[in-house]
């Protein structure tokens, strides 16, 4: 079993997993899930801002990876290939979504409170990253911090100029720090 993905992880490991998945190995899919679930989930959550929908997209992403793996041609960027599938499914889900609206800040706090694996600090950080940042800022920050993409890779992934990625990334960090500082201040 390979460990969970960390920034700069070896693309060869993921490529080997995808090759085995293409041969019908569900064990390889389980390994790929463990290695990449956080970037996939983070991207879905960032786009959808809705925990149940993000979980559905997480599930559907791996189902699609399973189906499409035999056609995967390695170009040395397996995570970008995986996240393209997730992005596409997330945008589709966003369009289809008529019943479930994005959660308000209060609903976020409630949804996160239900998650026993999160510390109080984790809850505050996630709540602020969803409420204080714009969608593009959050997406870029998470692609960098969680998926380990370099800024140039993010620019290529989002078809966006590098300068825009850089400015949004730095702005996101500033905003998030400011929001966390404000949150830590004593309330009247």
């Amino acid at each position: 079993m390979i460990d969970q993905i960390s920034p700069g992880m070896d693309a060869e490991i993921l490529d080997r997993c995808l090759t085995r998945i293409a041969q019908g190995s569900t064990d390889a899919l389980a390994e790929l899930y463990e290695a990449t679930k956080t970037p996939v989930y983070a991207l879905a959550l960032s786009t959808l801002k809705h925990i149940p929908d993000a979980e559905d997209v997480l599930h559907d992403s791996y189902l699609q990876i399973w189906s499409a793996a035999p056609g995967y041609v390695s170009q040395g960027k397996p995570l970008a290939w995986i996240l393209t599938i997730t992005k596409h499914l997330s945008v589709q889900r966003l369009r289809e979504r008529t019943r479930s609206q994005p959660l308000s800040d209060e609903s976020w706090a409630c949804a996160l409170a239900d998650c026993p694996t999160l510390s109080p600090e984790d809850r505050i950080l996630l709540r602020e990253s969803m409420s204080a940042l714009s969608d593009p800022e959050r997406e870029i920050l998470l692609l960098h911090a969680v998926s380990g993409f370099r800024h140039r890779e993010i620019a290529a992934f989002l078809s966006c100029p590098l300068a825009t990625v850089l400015s949004r990334y730095h702005r996101a960090l500033k905003k998030l720090k400011r929001a966390l500082t404000k949150e830590a201040e004593p309330h009247d």
Binding site: C115, L142, A145
Partner: peptide, 8 residues
């Protein structure tokens, strides 16, 4: 951030 999302 990575740790929090991993936990979630």
């Amino acid at each position: 951030l990575q740790h929090s999302l991993s936990a979630l």
